[in-house]
Design a protein around this nucleic acid. Sequence first.
DNA 1: CCCGATCGTTACGGGTCCGTATCATTATTG
DNA 2: CAATAATGATACGGACCCGTAACGATCGGG
Lengths: 117, 117
Amino acid sequence: MPLEIRPSQALRLWRQVHLDLVRDGQADLSARQTAILLTIYLELPPHTVRGLAQQLGVTKPVITRALDSMGKLGLVSRKRDDFDRRNVVIQRTVVGALAVEKLADLVTERARELGGT
Amino acid sequence: MPLEIRPSQALRLWRQVHLDLVRDGQADLSARQTAILLTIYLELPPHTVRGLAQQLGVTKPVITRALDSMGKLGLVSRKRDDFDRRNVVIQRTVVGALAVEKLADLVTERARELGGT
DNA sequence: CCCGATCGTTACGGGTCCGTATCATTATTG
DNA sequence: CAATAATGATACGGACCCGTAACGATCGGG
């Protein structure tokens, strides 16, 4: 069940959502942080620093720092894995779930407003 | 002719495109820069620093710096307005047009791959 | 038990971006 | 022609992020 969208529609959607994010001051998240956040909330747990680093094709410190800043915003939280205390399990939060849901609504709404071009 | 997309589809599309951008190292553009670039290439010229600042709801130095960095990447160029030499007209470039087109194809392709959920 | 491997974090030097305030240049108005 | 307004650029201090290289903590095999 593919989603049909024309290149010009894709661009207008992309622009409008980014405009909304910038105007709302909500743009605190970089592209990397966005990818990390959505991976945590869309993919099946458990999520680890190493796993995320591999999926994104970046180094581990990038993930650690992103989790630091997103943790400050309350978007995610971390917990030691009791079965292997070297691991850290990244957990979802209520705040993060709300932010993701809000983004979903934003994209959906802007897509609905797309005209025929 | 609205574009029908479910919130879960929107999120998966958003995640997948961001993943691609991060993995390609193409993520040099912040959310603000993306909004600026797409505004320049989608909206009718002429574009000025002040006009872009108003549209994005940011200060003028933000636009100036974004144009600096995007100019280094060849994505846009600047030219003095001969009719009002206080103004600077932002112009499109071949490199920028190609980058925008590439982004459009990426979003379109990832949308096409979206499954039913 | 000990040594190597693995995990996440931290340190460091460098780069980029931000917001505020200020500047030089040009246009407009009285 | 002088004074004011408007435009874009710049200076500055601070914050954030990057990549590489190290580090401490923990696990597992011999």
